[in-house]
Simulated assay, not measured.
Amino acid sequence: MIVGIPREIKVREYRVAMTPAGVRALTESGHDIVVECGVGSGSGLEDREYLEAGARTVEGAAEVYAQADLIVKVKEPLPAEYGLLRSGQCLFTYLHLATNTALTSVLLQNRITALAYETVQLHDGSLPLLQPMSEVAGRMAVQIGAHFLQKEQGGKGVLLAGAPGVRPGRVVVLGAGTGGSNAVRIAVGMGADVTVLDIEPSRLALLDEHYGNRIHTLISNSQNIEDEVRHADLVVGAVLIPGARAPHLVTEDLVKQMEPGSVIVDLAVDQGGCVETVRPTTHDEPVRTVHGVLHYGVPNIPGAVSRTSTFALTNSTLAYIRKIADLGVSNALACDAALAKGLNTRDGQIHNRKVASALGLAFSPVTCADSDQG
């Protein structure tokens, strides 16, 4: 199979979909890998390394898309890339289609087989391809929040660790999944006063067992959210429903009750955000101030630590990419139930129920004819 890896064009997106070591693993299996020149420069990876791993380099993304059967990316295609997609091609990347009608329409019109990293799901409910980036984003969220709490950044001038005789900053984490638990880890390490809320008692129990009285755990309901958020210095939104639009747990009215200079970092912005007033921002202009509260809504947070993120992503995605390349898309979907859950569109139809529901479009269950899943 010809696997294509184009450069990412999202603002300040420095990650690349595969390391040279990943390319080598595929070429050793007999596959042809074509990469765009400079593909890994943002992660400190040179074209020479890709060539030595067995890849071919081409000038421009158009050549990659024209040659490849399977396109592997980090972030979803942007409008400038829509015209490069070929009918019948397979695309494997973070898609987040529940909030992207335009891209969904392109995928359907071009009959693209689109597999989303974020909806590949194991039998235990875990998301193996979202997990590494959620870990990175969760850890960065508290660092980012601490930065913007500084007075010179527009924040209220609070040090999360506090000082002798001065109480530490209050951090509220909404969601105790991968992103949320990693945010808790960093916030505790900084010495903050940490409260985490989740609807699953079992998740809270795990954190309580690990951190003991160094954190507060609460069941997530509207009353507890209101009580905690209005007094928070930093709110980290880490709520995820795979494939679906995130629920608005923090309303605009609640944001109005927060103290001016408080900070919100919403990790769920890719799925619409769990804070009503959050909108997507960029690394160039990462913060919007709404009702005196700083809102950080950068969708590609891990892109800022691109080298770490690129290696972590390849570690997780390579086995699935290799399976698709070795077996072909249909056979790979048929023999791997987790990968099959990653199927979002194929042959002009939406095969993810939550994406279809979020966009108000028809859902088509996967049949044997679609992908031999039975």
Score class of each variant (00 low, 15 high):
M1S: 04
I2N: 01
V3L: 12
I5Y: 02
I5N: 02
R7T: 04
I9T: 14
E13Y: 00
Y14V: 03
V16S: 12
T19F: 04
A21H: 05
R24Y: 09
T27A: 05
H31Q: 01
I33V: 15
V35R: 01
S41R: 14
G44M: 09
G44Y: 04
D47C: 03
R48A: 15
L51C: 10
E52C: 11
G54F: 03
G54V: 03
R56W: 10
T57V: 14
V58Q: 04
A66T: 12
A66D: 15
D69E: 14
V72C: 05
K75M: 11
K75P: 09
A80W: 00
E81H: 03
L84A: 15
C90A: 15
L91P: 08
T93D: 02
H96K: 04
A98V: 12
T101K: 11
L107V: 12
I112S: 05
A114M: 06
Q121V: 12
L122D: 13
H123E: 14
H123T: 15
G125L: 11
P128A: 07
P128C: 03
P128Y: 00
L130K: 09
M133P: 08
G138W: 01
F148Y: 15
F148H: 13
E152Y: 13
E152Q: 15
G154I: 01
G155S: 05
L160S: 05
G162W: 00
G165Y: 07
R170V: 13
V172H: 02
G175V: 05
T178A: 11
G180H: 06
S181G: 06
I186K: 07
A187F: 06
G189A: 07
V194K: 02
T195E: 06
T195M: 06
D198H: 06
E200M: 12
R203T: 13
H210E: 15
I215Q: 07
I215S: 10
T217S: 09
I225A: 10
E228I: 09
A232Y: 03
L234G: 06
L234E: 04
V239I: 12
L240N: 02
R245W: 07
V250W: 01
Q257G: 07
E259K: 10
P260V: 01
G261A: 03
G261D: 05
S262G: 12
I264Q: 03
V265S: 03
D266K: 05
V269W: 03
G272Q: 07
C274Y: 02
R279Y: 00
T282Y: 00
H283W: 13
H283I: 12
V290N: 09
V293A: 06
I301V: 10
G303D: 01
A304P: 04
T308E: 10
F311E: 10
L313H: 04
S316K: 06
T317H: 09
A319T: 12
R322H: 13
K323S: 14
K323N: 10
V329C: 13
C335V: 15
C335W: 00
L339M: 08
K341E: 13
G348Q: 09
Q349F: 00
N352F: 04
A356Y: 04
S357V: 09
L361Y: 08
F363P: 05
F363H: 11
D372K: 06
G374Y: 11
